[in-house]
């Protein structure tokens, strides 16, 4: 299907350690369509950032992709040599990281960083690149862009820096932007502005977004579909409204119940007992089994496959059609 921009199939990321091989991402598959925002949620250690890093080939050694494939617009990119991958990063896939201070170089002005990136990927001279940079800064909502472009990163506030990072990610007009916790370091009032900018920019340019976050509120606001990861495995993936309103996987349901909301009055929050297993201690069968309120014998021995349920896919034995009989 030509509608699909990014296709990830059975992706496995492994970290060899002295105590054996840890599987940080375990056979994760998903697609992102053109112009779509896919939210990826999970708790810390669920493998969401690792999935993002694997797609752009930035996993820190000794970690490595141990299986599966990543295709962007039909072209396989997970087995490319480093130099070829470097050309894809920035040009076809843009990145926005959590901390805008670490993704900008403190020793260069914003103008230098933006024009360098623009000139690396697009055929422009210095003057054109600078004009394009100012245009981009305007688009992401930085006031007085033509004056501020010669400032250094430390002269910008946190929210403004993150706008610069978004401008940087979008300057080569990539097909996909991977945003890894883009608003986590920001205050709520700034957070909503940044989400709005990201959403608007990508909608205008038809860019697909992989939005990685632990904040369900952000997902609800920005994403079209959502993938829920648990212990490196896909638990559930589907349209965001369906997943939030009517979670199928017991982990997703528990996660939703544990979030206090502004609208409802609840005396107690639903709580999932225990915490996510360490990568070295993932139980046999379903990784969520020991914490699951609906666990039964089969969950303890057999790892559930990801099966389609309506418009969604769920990895839970409860939704195995064979179980219904």
């Amino acid at each position: 299907m030509s509608d699909v921009l990014l296709s990830v199939r059975d992706l496995v990321v492994e970290f060899p350690t002295r105590r054996g091989v840890l599987t940080a991402v375990d056979r994760v598959s998903f697609d992102i369509r053109r112009g779509e925002v896919l939210g990826v949620v999970g708790e810390s250690g669920a493998g969401k950032s690792m999935t993002g890093s694997a797609i752009i080939g930035l996993i820190e050694p000794p970690g490595h992709i141990a299986g599966g494939s990543v295709h962007i617009a039909g072209e396989r990119i997970d087995d490319l040599p480093a130099e070829a991958m470097r050309k894809i990063r920035g040009k076809r896939i843009g990145m926005v990281f959590q901390d805008p201070l670490t993704s900008l170089n403190p020793l260069y002005t914003i103008a230098q960083q933006l024009t360098e990136t623009i000139r690396t990927h697009l055929d422009m001279d210095d003057r054109q690149a600078r004009a394009r940079a100012i245009e981009l800064m305007d688009e992401v909502g930085i006031p007085a862009a033509s004056r501020r472009i010669d400032d250094y990163p430390h002269q910008f506030s946190g929210g403004m820096r993150q706008r610069v990072v978004i401008a940087l990610a979008l300057c080569a007009e990539p097909q996909l932007v991977i945003a890894d916790e883009p608003t986590t370091a920001l205050d709520v009032s700034v957070q909503s502005q940044i989400i709005a900018v990201l959403k608007r920019m990508c909608a205008e340019k038809g860019t697909s977004v992989m939005l990685i976050t632990h904040d369900m509120g952000v997902i609800a606001e920005a994403a079209d579909r959502v993938a829920v990861l648990y212990a490196g495995r896909m638990a559930e993936i589907g349209p965001v409204r369906e997943v939030i309103k009517d979670a199928k996987h017991p982990y997703t349901a528990g996660l939703m119940g544990s979030i206090p909301t502004l609208m409802q009055d609840e005396d107690r929050l639903t709580q999932i007992p225990g915490s996510m297993p360490r990568l070295s201690e993932i139980p046999a069968g379903c990784a969520f089994g020991p914490r699951c309120p609906k666990v039964f014998d089969r969950c303890r021995t057999e790892q559930p496959a990801v099966r389609p349920v309506g418009e969604r896919e769920v990895a839970c034995h409860l939704f195995d059609p064979a179980m219904a009989q």
Partner: peptide
């Protein structure tokens, strides 16, 4: 400004400026 799970129907004003 708070992103909310109850996505439907809440008219939100865009927040302006920073602290």
């Amino acid at each position: 400004a708070v992103p909310d799970l109850e996505m439907a129907g809440r008219q939100r004003k865009p927040v302006e400026g920073e602290i």
